[in-house]
Simulated assay, not measured.
Amino acid sequence: MLSRYRESAAKGKRLQAFLIGEALISQFVPPFVWRDGLPNDDLDVNHRFDLFLADLMWLRAAHARHAQAVRYKRCKLILSTVSQTVFHREAEYMYWQGRRPAWKLVASLSMTDDQQWDCGYLRAAAIKKRALATAELAPSVGNPPIFDAR
């Protein structure tokens, strides 16, 4: 499913990527894993919105009680509503055509560091920097040698 998601996202097939994303969330695969290997720089506003939606869907599924910790009424609604129509309407309002930076959305949703690590788009500057540093070091770490107890 991950390869199909990555292929759909790379080709701009938004609906297909959204549906595969829902399936990934139902299998409890966090959104930060979905884009592994895809470029994150220079994404258009629609692609960033799709990543934002995926993160919100993840928060709703994996952190269902988090809505109680959120300060703002509209943010509580987006995390607790059952209606897909209300969810999408509030997500579009919150995203504000890409003019709100991710760190402001993170603050509005009162997200913890652990929740931010699970997300692919909703990350404050500190988490984003650490994630980039980790990604840069990942190829050099490689697989540790397996201990042979002979």
Rank of each mutant, 00 (worst) to 15 (best):
A54H: 11
L51K: 03
L53F: 02
N46T: 00
K76D: 08
A9E: 08
F147Y: 10
G21V: 00
K128R: 07
R35L: 13
Q68E: 15
A125M: 15
G142E: 10
E136K: 13
L109T: 13
P39A: 05
Q16T: 10
I146Y: 06
V86M: 13
Y5D: 02
A62Y: 04
N143V: 06
A138H: 07
W117S: 08
F32R: 14
Q16D: 12
Q97M: 09
A9P: 01
R14Y: 06
A107L: 12
I146Q: 09
Q84C: 06
R65S: 13
Y5R: 01
H47A: 12
Y121D: 02
R6H: 02
I146D: 07
G12T: 03
L105E: 03
K129I: 04
F28P: 00
A131I: 14
A23P: 00
K13Y: 03
R89D: 12
W103S: 11
V29I: 13
R150K: 14
E22I: 05
A131Q: 14
R71I: 04
V45C: 12
D36V: 11
R14N: 06
R35C: 05
A107R: 15
V141S: 05
W103R: 11
L19S: 10
D118L: 06
W34G: 05
L43C: 13
N143E: 12
A91V: 04
P101S: 04
E136G: 02
D36L: 04
Y93H: 08
A91H: 07
T85H: 10
W58I: 07
A102S: 08
Y5A: 08
L24E: 02
S80L: 03
K11V: 01
W103E: 14
L19Y: 10
L24G: 01
P101R: 14
L122H: 03
I127W: 01
D50Q: 06
C75Y: 06
P30T: 01
V33T: 05
V70N: 12
A107E: 15
K128D: 03
Y5P: 00
A102Y: 04
R60C: 12
L105Q: 06
K76S: 04
L51I: 03
A124L: 10
S110K: 07
K13M: 09
Q16L: 14
L132W: 10
A125R: 15
T134Y: 09
M94G: 04
T81M: 11
F18H: 05
R74N: 01
R6K: 08
I25A: 07
W96V: 02
K76E: 09
W34R: 04
R65F: 08
N46C: 04
L122M: 09
R74G: 00
G120C: 02
E22R: 15
